[in-house]
Amino acid sequence: MQTSILILFLILTGLALLVFVYVFMTSKGAKSSGGGIRNALKKRLWFILILFVLLGFTAWVTISKSPYYLFADEAPSQVIHVASMQFAFVLSNNSIDPDSPKGVSSIELPKNELIEFRVTSLDVNHGFAIYDASNRLIAQTQAMPGYVNRLRWKFTEPGIYHILCLEYCGMAHHGMRASITIK
């Protein structure tokens, strides 16, 4: 998905920069100050309308794909509780006692089954980001003290998935990790 996003960005950026360069060149080549755009107001309003329709269409298509609605109609086959803390993740099949968090930093999960991660923090804000075997970010949620974020995900490929913290949480933030093995 990230590659598609990058390509889209590069195309849009290329088009925008072409417009700016072209407009600048027309100014450099202009012989009098009387040039400009005819019916500028009409063209401006058309431009705004087209942009509005494009953005509206994009919003309509993308909002339904937001992570809040992922697998919303299915019942998860497993619930994994995640307690985040400086600078570790504790994962467990059972609820985690905040005063005495018990769990593991590496778990095994089945392929093609819906997993619900219930993610919280025992101290500061953290990120719970799942990277696939090729180290590409595939899903994430925040871990916030006092709240539980529910992230649903179905792993379709076997392999080792790394969990990294993506919310800055202090001096060892970059070393905070866990893993999931999908069999």
């Binding site: 700016f20 600048f24 202009a30 100050s33 040039g35 755009i37």
Partner: peptide, 15 residues
């Protein structure tokens, strides 16, 4: 639609 377009208009084919 307003700011960027205005800058473009101000420059396009204008000496």
């Amino acid at each position: 639609g307003v700011t960027v377009f205005s800058v473009i208009i101000a420059v396009y084919r204008t000496k």
